[in-house]
Design a binder for these strands. Sequence first.
DNA 1: AAAATATTTAAAGAAATCCTTAAAAATATT
DNA 2: AATATTTTTAAGGATTTCTTTAAATATTTT
Lengths: 122, 122
Amino acid sequence: MVAFIFATEWLHIMADVRRDVFQAIADPTRRAILVLLAAQAMTPNDLAEHFDSSRQAVSKHLRILTECRLVKQEQEGREIFYHLEASKMKEIDKWLDQFRKIWEDRFQQLDKVLLTLKNKKK
Amino acid sequence: MVAFIFATEWLHIMADVRRDVFQAIADPTRRAILVLLAAQAMTPNDLAEHFDSSRQAVSKHLRILTECRLVKQEQEGREIFYHLEASKMKEIDKWLDQFRKIWEDRFQQLDKVLLTLKNKKK
DNA sequence: AAAATATTTAAAGAAATCCTTAAAAATATT
DNA sequence: AATATTTTTAAGGATTTCTTTAAATATTTT
């Protein structure tokens, strides 16, 4: 027996389709998890102790972080250690590059000063 | 007459309370808007032409970007030019700083190589 | 003043997000 | 083999997000 599933149906079945780094870091809890994992690899249990929410909630966050490769699992018996994949964050850094030139631009700063002066005159 | 509003009610009334930079850049359309504005200030109408969605949708995205100070308005008659506030992106850059040390760490890279070798042996 | 243009706000609905509790799966301990 | 531990998956619900169309507001042109 073979079952055909259309893409639209599949997306409906697959709850939580968020494999995007920007989407991933939008959640404050996930950002906190990433910071904790930057210090050292931890299990979901360890992590959950740092938050008010349930272990299941943390597990789900870890799933999302894993899906977008910000984090990697390493099984150790029945425990799973989650490691930060810091290099994946380069994607964000790279995206920021196109703005970095602007915010470091001194003329931009000058423009702002002039604009402020102009508005004060009014 | 005075009306008392509880915080919970207020949050219910205030739809879309998202003044967080990370939340703001989570949406792909908003990221595209930021990139366009990096090149030059534009009106909502100008921007809308670059997208499939309606002017109203773009307007709402601009509202969110304005609320978290990623963008600034400058009225010019009945037109409103939206400028990028690139410096606000430093917040993201600053957050990335705590990971930058890790992803640039050569020993981290070495660890990865060793881990790969270890797994190959298995 | 009336019509046209630019933009925002409101209302409503579909989809996504996030959380919780309960159940399942996998591994370790007794 | 039975029990305990660690983690994930499932189901359900409240809230948020994003989009659309319609209506409102503000400014310019005629």
